[in-house]
Amino acid sequence: AMSCSESTNIKSFAEGDILHPQVLALFPLCDLTEEDLSQNPQFCKLLVTLTKHVDSTGLTLSLKTELEKADQKLQSQRRNWLRSQGLFQTLKEMIQEHCVRRHYSTVPPDQNVVHTFYETMEKCLLVAQCVRMLDPSNSTQKEQPNILGLEPQQILQLMPLEKVRQKMKQSLPHELEKHLKNKCLSLLCYYHPEWENKSENLKCTKLSYLAKQVDKDKKNAESLKESCRENKILLQRQSQLYLSELIKCIKLLQTLILDHRLKIQTELDKKKLDYFEGKCELVLQKIKTEMVDIQLDTYTPDTISAHRKIREKLDSELKCCQEEKQGAEVKLASFEILGKEFQALAEEYGRLRQEIEMKNWALKEFTQYSNK
């Protein structure tokens, strides 16, 4: 059970929005926001309680202690391996540099001792490598078959003479120190190019501070990595907040579109209708203008005067015809008053007129033929 003081501390620690960033800093790997903590205060208290039992990576304290011990042991073994591996690589570099110098320059007679030294060291390294390859691994229960049927003792017989080996071992520390010193001076010149032309004593003096400078640069690099990691976490959180706000804006925009689409469409249709009405009115006015232009081009002053005279003549003829029509209508009315007897007389009169016209025509024709 949790004590009263611990509960009070957790409550005071988890209360208020200003403390939420501290809770988030204790769990940088969790995908949480301040809004999540403010909406779930009990969960925030749980996270604060977990900080007493786990670290920022989520490991328990006991497991973290075991992990630190295993890491220390691993680092110790790693340092031992790196020490032997570094020494081996340095010896190979010395042999390679000697081969290069010997290839590009003529070795004076007094350098035969140096050549013997490097040759002996190379043979010893090769024999040691072969023996190690022939030696079965300690991690396997079954013995591995030897390469080409060779035994380590057969390879050890290829070692140089004991006297030559002892002489090489006596000279090895000095040569190794000389080689490492040259490498350190080269590293110093890389860090400080202005020291390249200085004396060797000054370089050696400056070399004593090189380790501190390298360590300082390493710490700066680690600090920059940590800063980059924090900035990355901050960027992820800001990106999440940005995306959440963007989603809210998109939803709000969708709501505005759905709610006001018909209203906007109606206003747009009204404006389009007004536009088309105005355009139609403009087209009608243009048509009227074109009609007036056609009339003006068709009816010139001379044409209008001629049409006026024609109209006057037609009006006079129409007036005469109307008068004749009225006279005929009066006569017809007077004839209709006399009745059916007058109609028989009129028909007889019409028949006699036709006979007279026929006889006149026949007489005329007869007269024409007689004269011929």
Rank of each mutant, 00 (worst) to 15 (best):
M2V: 07
C4M: 15
T8V: 15
K11E: 15
S12T: 14
A14C: 08
E15D: 08
E15N: 05
D17S: 14
H20F: 10
P21T: 01
Q22H: 15
Q22E: 13
F27V: 01
P28A: 02
C30Y: 11
L32M: 01
E35A: 11
L37S: 00
Q39S: 11
K52P: 00
S56P: 04
S56G: 01
T57L: 09
L63Y: 09
E66S: 10
L67N: 09
Q77M: 13
R78S: 14
R78K: 14
R79F: 02
W81D: 12
L87C: 07
T90M: 02
T90P: 01
E93N: 08
R101D: 11
R102V: 13
H103C: 06
N112S: 11
H115M: 07
H115L: 12
F117W: 01
F117P: 03
T120E: 03
R132L: 14
M133Y: 12
L134K: 06
S139T: 13
S139G: 07
T140Y: 06
T140G: 02
Q141P: 04
Q144P: 04
I147N: 01
G149S: 01
G149R: 01
E151G: 03
L156D: 02
Q157D: 08
K163Y: 02
V164K: 06
V164M: 05
Q170G: 06
L172P: 01
L172S: 00
P173V: 05
H174L: 11
H174D: 13
E177R: 15
K178M: 01
L187I: 04
W195S: 09
E200S: 04
E200K: 06
S208C: 11
L210E: 00
K212G: 14
V214W: 00
K218E: 11
L224N: 07
K225I: 13
E226Q: 11
S227A: 10
S244A: 14
L246H: 04
L252C: 07
L252Y: 05
L253V: 07
Q254F: 00
T255P: 03
D259G: 05
T266V: 14
T266K: 14
T266W: 06
E267K: 09
K271L: 14
K271T: 09
L273W: 04
K279C: 06
C280G: 09
L284E: 13
Q285F: 04
I287R: 13
T289V: 04
Q295H: 04
Q295C: 10
D297F: 03
Y299K: 05
T300A: 01
I310S: 15
E312C: 03
L314W: 07
L314I: 08
C321V: 15
E323W: 04
Q326I: 08
G327N: 15
A328H: 10
S334K: 15
S334L: 14
F335C: 13
I337A: 13
E348C: 06
Y349H: 12
R351D: 10
R351I: 10
L352R: 09
Q354S: 12
M358N: 15
E365D: 10
T367M: 09
